[in-house]
Nucleic acid binder design. Structure first.
Length: 792
DNA sequence: AGCACGCCGACT
DNA sequence: GTCGGCGTGCTC
């Protein structure tokens, strides 16, 4: 018996299967998908069992040393999926397997088995658990076989070995000693101490943080402690990120006509066990989520499982709560905020069948479900479904593959579908389901476009038009809430000399440096270069060197200057990077602790607060002017989405969009909430420009420290592509990239445009293989992006 | 990717 | 002589 194994070495040269003998004692335990340790050349390496062969191998083989898992981490489906991704994404097999699995099962983490109920097992097995837990590498195959049933029944639990100090977080708290509260109160003279004691008597124990929040200072606490009435303790922080909230069960809602029609079609596909793709086009507030929830409920009733994808930023606690409320413990949640251990917990819940629904961001498309009944991708147009670094996969493509494997429907939902998806729906490749009525019956907000050129002409040089200023003041006065949107974080974009026009650039990259006020530094976001802000222009020594382009930080200052009574919560990458910060800020806003929410992209989704009556887009042009063929589409989507934040409750919503391009079609169609109109017009431009969905794209980027070298080599590759591809495809370039140099590497790109190109994968694979050695030797790098999200 | 092997130069 | 530079080639 031998095994075919992918070895965990991230190199093109060993990106293939290696055969190893399965030693006699492991024959009964090895399974496809298990991780094993094998001798590889002069050293030992981890590997994945891809196939098991019963017959003997023609050659003498090395043997597997030991196994790493008691149950396989990968199932047959994921193995087949990784093979498909390897060929279609020009990626190494091991790199694909790596992104599919949670980090806990990679490299430096060891699995351990802990004995939970010692009385349940025999003395012989008991001796294995020296320190209550045991690493799998120290177990013989025989032991593993004997222990396995106990793992399945829960007498022994599987976990990953972690540094205890790091993993178990403790909070400092206090609790009452065993005392008679009334007697104690009588001895106290300070009212603060009495109040504090009463609070503790009510709630049992409180953390120091909570006490501080209730205005009990450390002096009060230590006073009580000295009197021996309370004592300090340490409590373990919750591992379940949602453990502290009480979830109220959520009953299913009655569907309106259009929702019902959409539901019926999807339900049919579930019942037929037929892989179909649906595009659910429903305006904001049309109740798409309720359709998802009810189809998922049906899938569960048929004893199948459901996979739900949402963009990371939409994965808010409110969203998760809604799923938990409907499906309870059957829901696994996967997002970037989880620790390695938490993520592994969720993954195992799915693998063991304990959770039959998952809600998660991009990478959760690999959730190890058996028997999938439906896959849903909400906000399917979101760019975050495409992984922007290697291996560059799109969750939508993976979802289609899995849907076809499981014979189940894939539902793409959006208020503003991507042009690619809508075009496919029009062609009949996907089935289009439309919801045009708002389920909540809220009125559609009024949208007003303000021409900032007119403002400038009228002498208003500020960030706020007269109209927006009036509206903000009005809402502040009425005690209503405002959301302001700005697509740029930080303080200022760059420095500009008013006298000579000089802009300080990064010495290593062809990009202007960004100004950070906190440190008073200029930074490069691409290579990390930092320098102090110059006092005079480095070029002409003029003192008129100014900050240009305003970020959220700066706007926050401006708001306080301009508006009396403004209380701002700022949400951007800088204020939400801490775990849980996102949620905290939203809760604060919900509790009316502020009247203005100022933020970037991330506030465009999932906010659903009744008191928001005004939404302002400070500058709609920042994304409109990006040099990318999708910039109009992005602008339209974002404006539509931002506008949807207003007017959700009984109060009328108002949206003000400030722009220097008021006549731009993306702005106009967004204003009129006219998806069909936008689609039609944008499609004509895509057709003329030979862009998706009329053509497919591949973006090849080359880089090297010498410009000559890149140019020469990329010309060579251009020739190779012309030879391999059919004459109907276009091979454009090589041309310098938008950012022509990053970290002192010159960058050139070649763009392939094609409608149908049978030789594409073959040609790209050839490039990847054939040029590989040359690239390694010459320090050349080549990146291949199939169906890129951006061409920059 | 690593790691060994091997073939040349400059040292105690 | 032999220590160590890194070009070349292999990993079941």
């Amino acid at each position: 018996m031998y095994a075919r194994i992918v070895v965990d070495v991230n190199a093109k040269r060993v990106d293939r299967l290696f055969d190893y003998e399965v030693p006699e004692q492991l024959k009964s335990v090895v399974q496809i998908g298990m991780r094993v340790v094998v001798p590889f050349g002069p050293r030992k390496r981890q590997g994945y069992i891809i196939e098991l062969m019963d017959e003997a191998h023609e050659k003498e083989l090395k043997s597997i040393l030991h196994i790493q898992d008691m149950t396989p981490e990968l199932n047959k489906e994921l193995i087949a999926l990784s093979e498909w991704m390897q060929t279609t994404h020009i990626a190494k097999r091991i790199a694909v397997l790596d992104i599919m699995l949670p980090r806990a099962v990679k490299g430096k983490y060891h699995k351990v088995y802990r004995l939970e109920e010692p009385e349940e097992i025999s003395d012989e097995l008991y001796t294995l658990f020296r320190k209550q837990q045991v690493r799998i590498s120290s177990l013989s195959a025989d032991d593993i076989l004997k222990l396995k049933p106990y793992v399945e029944s829960g007498v022994i639990t599987e976990d990953i070995e972690v540094n205890q100090q790091q993993q178990v977080k403790t909070l400092k708290a206090v609790e009452l000693c065993d005392i008679n509260v009334e007697q104690a109160l009588a001895t106290l003279r300070s009212d603060k101490q009495k109040d504090c004691l009463l609070s503790l008597a009510d709630e049992g124990r409180l953390t120091l943080k909570e006490l501080k929040a209730r205005d009990f200072s450390a002096a009060v606490v230590s006073g009580l402690e000295k009197k021996g009435l309370i004592r300090k303790i340490e409590i373990e922080a919750a591992r379940d990120p949602f453990a502290h909230r009480t979830v109220h069960p959520d009953a299913k809602k009655v569907l309106l006509t259009e929702q019902q029609a959409a539901y019926n079609r999807i339900r049919q596909s579930i019942d037929d066990e037929e892989h179909r793709v649906f595009l659910l086009h429903g305006i904001t507030g049309s109740g798409k989520t309720e359709v998802y929830l009810q189809t998922i409920a049906d899938v569960l009733a048929q004893n199948k499982t459901a996979l739900m994808l949402v963009p990371e930023i939409a994965l808010t606690p409110q969203m998760v709560e809604r799923f938990k409320a409907r499906f309870g413990d059957e829901v696994a949640v996967m997002h970037s905020g989880l620790s390695i251990g938490e993520r592994y917990d969720e993954w195992r819940k799915i693998r063991s069948g304990q959770a039959r629904v998952s809600v998660g961001a991009r990478s959760s498309v690999f959730a190890p479900f058996e028997n999938l009944g439906i896959i849903i991708i909400d906000e399917e147009h979101e760019a975050s479904y495409k992984q922007e670094d290697y291996p560059r996969y799109h969750a939508r493509d993976v979802a289609f593959w899995r849907g076809s494997y499981h014979n189940c429907p894939v539902v793409l939902g959006s208020a503003t579908p991507s042009l690619e998806s809508y075009a496919r729906a029009e062609k009949g490749v996907y089935e289009l389901l439309t919801i045009q009525t708002r389920a909540n019956q809220f009125p559609v907000p009024t949208v007003q476009v303000v021409n900032m050129r007119d403002e400038l002409a009228a002498g208003n040089r500020s960030m706020f038009s007269a109209e927006l200023t009036r509206a903000i003041n009005d809402r502040i006065q009425k005690g209503e809430q405002i959301v302001l949107f700005l697509n740029r974080r930080g303080h200022a974009q760059f420095l500009l000399c008013r006298d000579c026009g000089h802009v300080p650039n990064c010495p290593n990259c062809d990009i202007s440096l960004t100004y950070h006020k906190v440190t008073d530094e200029l930074k490069c976001h691409y290579c990390g270069h930092k320098e102090y802000k110059p006092l005079t222009c480095p070029n002409c020594e003029s003192e008129h060197i100014r900050e240009m382009g305003v970020g959220t930080q700066k706007v926050e200052e401006l708001i306080y200057q301009h508006f009396e009574g403004a209380r701002v919560i700022r949400m951007d990458n800088d204020t939400t990077s801490r775990k849980g910060a996102h949620e905290q800020l939203l809760t604060k806003f919900k509790n009316q602790e502020a009247n203005i929410l100022l933020g970037t992209q991330m506030i465009a989704k999932g906010l659903d607060f009744p008191n928001i009556t005004l939404v302002g887009v400070l500058n709609a042009d920042t994304m409109l002017n990006l040099p990318d063929f999708r910039s109009s589409e992005r602008t339209f989507q974002l404006l539509t989405q931002v506008a949807g934040r207003a007017g959700r409750a009984d109060k009328e919503g108002h949206v003000i969009i400030q722009t220097y391009n008021p006549e731009h079609y993306a702005v106009q169609y967004a204003k009129n909430n006219d998806y069909a109109g936008f689609y039609k017009e944008e499609m004509t431009y895509r057709k003329i420009g030979k862009y998706p969905p009329y053509y497919y794209l591949v973006n090849l980027v080359f880089s090297h420290a010498e410009m000559k070298e890149v140019l020469l080599e990329s010309k060579h590759i251009h020739q190779t592509l012309l030879q391999h591809l059919s004459p109907s495809s276009y091979v454009l370039g090589p041309a310098p990239c938008t950012i022509a140099r990053i970290n002192n590497q010159y960058r050139f790109q070649i763009i392939i445009k094609f409608k149908s190109e049978p030789a594409l994968l073959e040609a790209l694979t050839y490039l990847d293989d054939h040029y590989y050695d040359k690239f390694v030797k010459n320090k050349f790098s080549l990146s291949i992006d199939i169906n890129p999200q951006m061409l920059m």
